[in-house]
Design a protein around this nucleic acid. Sequence first.
DNA 1: AAAATAACCAACCGCCGACAC
DNA 2: CGTGTCGGCGGTTGGTTATTT
Length: 224
Amino acid sequence: MEGESKYKRGLWTLEEDKLLKNYIRENGSGRWSRVQAITGLKRGGKSCRLRWINYLSPTVKRGNFSKDEDDLIIRLHKLLGNRWSLIAGRVPGRTDNQVKNHWNTYLSKKFVTKKEKNKPSLPSSSVARTNGEAVETQKVFPQLNSEGQMKNIDNNGGVNSGPVVAGESFLFATDTSSTHVTQQPIHSDFMDNDLWFIDDYSFQSLGSILQYPNGDYPPDFVCE
DNA sequence: AAAATAACCAACCGCCGACAC
DNA sequence: CGTGTCGGCGGTTGGTTATTT
């Protein structure tokens, strides 16, 4: 097809990086589709955006993931599933691509190995594949309304409500085969034990780690 | 030392929602 | 409303590097 080679592909060169950085400095990030016209880069807007967000941006942290970062990612993944942008948003300096790669190449193996000791099988309705391994990805999406009522919506559309104090730790538990979600108080050492590994019939998560430092909740926590 | 395999990670792809016209 | 464009997302690919045989 004509036009298929309109854009260069593959790894970025230092010269291309320099052109893109110059563009950002002069025009700010965004309007990616204009980058080619302005800089002469033979790259599509999407490619430029990705290169900036995942690599060139000064906010991107390079180097190995720390133990703390690993722990946080594991917990957030338990809570959010494969919603990498949401997870990355709570791991300072890390991009969704970094978190996703780190999970797929390292953490999922640790995670699955540990989980498999306690879990002989998975319900087929909630099985996804990661690196060829079966991983349960049941999701619960809590929503907080203006009165502090927490609506927990699971991936089957089931809803359950109850009072929640913003910032207080709470626990979601849901039967994998039903639409019911319940909340239970948790004890303070929850974060230090292995409860956040999936067991046979429940999905449990720590809601408070979803909250941003300024007290806001992510888009999934809709204030009505 | 060479070949095979595994691990890592940057980049691409397809889809989707928001928005402008 | 319908259509096109853009940005964002998660899944996947493929090239490079490290490790094992």
